Simulated scan of single mutants.
Amino acid sequence: MKSKKSIIEDAVSTLQLEAQAILGLIENINDDFVKIIDLIIASEGRVIVTGIGKSAIIAQKIVATFNSTGTPAIFMHAADAVHGDLGMIQKNDVVICISKSGNTPEIKVLTPLLKQAGNVMIGMVGQSNSDLALQADFILNTSVTKEACPHNLAPTTSTTAQLAMGDALAIALLNARNFNEEDFARYHPGGALGKKLYLKAGDIALKNEKPSIHPSASVKDVIIEISQNRLGAVVVIEGNVILGIITDGDIRRMLEKHSNLADIKASDLMNPNPKKVDREVLAMNALDMIKDNNITQLLVTDNGTYFGMIHFHDLLQEGII
Rank of each mutant, 00 (worst) to 15 (best):
K5Q: 14
Q162H: 01
R177Y: 07
R177M: 09
N30I: 04
N229W: 10
V234T: 15
P112W: 10
I139T: 06
D292I: 12
K108W: 04
I223R: 09
T159W: 00
G202N: 12
D302M: 07
D248Q: 13
Q20N: 14
L243F: 09
L255C: 07
F33S: 02
E238W: 06
V125S: 01
S227F: 07
S101C: 10
D268C: 10
D263G: 13
I98P: 00
M88W: 03
K220T: 11
G194E: 06
F312S: 14
Q20Y: 04
K291V: 15
D38P: 01
L134F: 07
L315I: 13
V95L: 03
Q135F: 09
I224Q: 10
T159R: 00
A148H: 02
H151K: 07
G194R: 05
K108C: 15
H77K: 03
I57W: 00
R253H: 13
G123Y: 06
N141K: 01
G51L: 04
I41M: 09
K275G: 08
L134N: 14
I290K: 11
V82M: 14
G51H: 01
F66Y: 05
L298N: 10
A176V: 03
A233L: 11
G70P: 05
Q90K: 12
E18F: 03
V222C: 13
K61I: 00
L173R: 02
I237W: 01
N180H: 07
D80Q: 12
I40M: 04
Q127S: 12
V125K: 00
K35N: 11
S68A: 08
S259N: 13
A73N: 02
T69C: 05
P189F: 06
V49W: 01
L269T: 08
G308W: 05
K275Y: 15
G239A: 11
D250R: 12
G24I: 02
Q20W: 01
P105F: 04
L113N: 10
Q116A: 15
T159F: 00
L173F: 06
A185V: 06
Y187E: 04
L261T: 13
I224W: 06
G45Q: 06
A170I: 03
V281H: 08
V235C: 14
K2C: 05
A217E: 10
Q90W: 00
F138E: 01
K5L: 13
I223P: 08
G126C: 09
I62Y: 00
V219F: 15
G190I: 07
I295E: 11
A192W: 02
T156V: 04
L298V: 11
I89E: 02
V125M: 02
T71L: 04
I40N: 02
L25N: 09
P155F: 00
D278W: 07
L110D: 03
M289L: 15
F179W: 10
Y198M: 11
M309Y: 04
